[in-house]
Design a protein around this nucleic acid. Structure first.
Length: 422
DNA sequence: CTTCCACAGGAAGGTCTGGCGG
DNA sequence: CCGCCAGACCTTCCTGTGGAAG
């Protein structure tokens, strides 16, 4: 993001000025997904269920392995981490040896790194730690067994986003680790937001990992309200929220499969928008702004990471739309027209052009990503085609596209003279 | 009612990359 | 290290079609 400094502003001590300006937050962190609240509203049942499975660890026995399923923002990670904390606390209190290892498999995604991470978690001496690479995998596995046995007690391993793990060998090895242990026990908790994940698993792993299954249902609008109220109390200064802001954020997030993360983002960004607008109260207006911003940010990110050919097609659509607006025409943009402009662009940028068949597919891809809308319409005698529109801010997308090197010398590009029918 | 445009979109096959077992 | 295969990415060829115009 760039900071523009107007000609007339006094730009000495910018940060000082911003710091002094009375913000709306007390603790911004409390609205971020990583924040761990003291109480998790509406997850009492889930906490209880998981706790009653893992409580066996406090009795020194092996808890069943658990598989937890639930959509994003339903509190899976929060609940498991919460339980982990409690388990460790209670373990200390009753002097039972408990180890708790949390790993996100999206970051630690190979068998080697997984085993290495768990083992290192149990090793205190830096010198003894297993390096990022270099050891044979089975040696790491042996070391892991040795360490767990040395530690004794019960080790609970949380594998978050377990579906991101490459290959199921790692899961297979971990699930039968108890057979190799003398005086320690291991329990695995797998977390996933993909219910179909277990279907592709080795049946042995499947039955072992899924000794217990838990499903986290999405929050409904009123539950989201409670969560937002709780966090707003910690994060925001008192009396700056309009009464209808939290219900609105909750309702919007509830529409999107009850995602608490989404609701919190919405509220946080609303507050940020209000803060930046110099407002002293957060109103519905800022929620709308925030929603808009989230959507635009999403689109910008998608556009930025588009393959070159798709960018080229998108640029063709944008140029056509811009031209039409300049000429005061508001006709429909069709696949054929886009293809012509696209081919011309390819010539200018010296890239190979795809066939119209392929371009048509890429256009519907762009449609599915929500960058453009492409509806099939019939113009009767003049054929059947797609009516293509841009769904959001043209100029901002153009800016992103111009970041791309291949569009560098296209700044003065003009659509070749052609009169539009109808 | 029929015609006919300008595509939509299915099917099949080619090329290339990257992972994986031997 | 090598051959094999799956899947991504494209092309070629094709049949199907909504509805304004005739």
């Amino acid at each position: 993001m760039s900071i523009l400094i107007g000609k007339n502003t006094v730009n000495s001590d910018i940060f000082g000025h911003l710091l002094k300006s009375d913000g709306l937050f007390i603790d911004r962190e409390a609205m971020r997904p990583s924040y761990m609240p003291e109480i998790l509203p509406h997850r009492g049942k889930e906490i209880n269920d998981l706790a009653s499975i893992l409580v066996t660890a406090l009795r020194g026995e092996t808890p069943s392995n658990v598989f937890i399923y639930g959509k994003t923002g339903t509190g899976k990670t929060a609940v498991t981490k919460f339980i982990g904390k409690e388990l460790l606390r209670k373990g200390l209190e009753t002097s039972k040896k408990i180890n708790f290892v949390y790993l996100n498999c999206e970051i630690v995604d190979t068998q080697y790194r997984l085993l290495q991470n768990i083992t290192n978690h149990l090793i205190n001496e830096w010198s003894e730690r297993i390096p990022f690479t270099g050891w044979p995998t089975d040696e790491v596995y042996a070391k892991l067994i040795q360490m767990i046995d040395k530690e004794g007690g019960v080790t609970v391993i949380i594998l978050d986003e377990v579906d991101k793990l490459k290959g199921d060998e790692a899961l297979y090895n971990l699930s039968r680790i108890n057979g190799n242990l003398q005086n320690a026990k291991v329990s695995i908790v797998g977390i996933s937001n993909d219910l179909k994940f277990t279907e592709f698993l080795d049946p042995r792993v499947k039955s072992s990992l899924g000794e217990e299954n838990m499903i986290f249902p999405p929050y409904d609008a009123s539950q989201l309200q409670d969560i937002l109220k709780q966090r707003a109390k910690i994060a925001l200064k008192p009396n700056i929220l309009d009464d209808d802001v939290i219900p609105l954020c909750s309702a919007l997030a509830a529409q999107e499969h009850g995602d608490a993360r989404r609701a919190l983002d919405l509220l946080r960004i609303s507050a940020e928008q209000a803060e930046r607008g110099g407002a002293t109260k957060i109103t519905k207006k800022f929620v709308r702004l925030a929603q808009n911003k989230i959507e635009i940010d999403r689109i910008m990110e998608v556009v930025r990471t588009l393959p070159t050919q798709s960018k080229q097609i998108l640029l063709a659509v944008l140029l056509r739309e811009q031209q039409d607006r300049k000429d005061g025409i508001s006709g429909v943009i069709t696949t054929g027209e886009v293809y012509e402009i696209y081919k011309d662009l390819c010539r200018k940028t010296r890239t190979d052009s795809l066939t119209q068949r392929r371009v048509a597919d890429l256009i519907s891809e762009l449609d599915m990503l929500g960058i453009i809308t492409a509806r099939v319409i019939s113009k009767g005698r003049y054929g059947r085609t797609r009516e293509i529109r841009i769904s959001s801010s043209t100029s901002e997308i153009l800016n992103i596209l111009h970041e791309d090197d291949i569009f560098k010398d296209l700044t003065n590009y003009k659509i070749r003279g052609q009169t539009k029918l109808l």
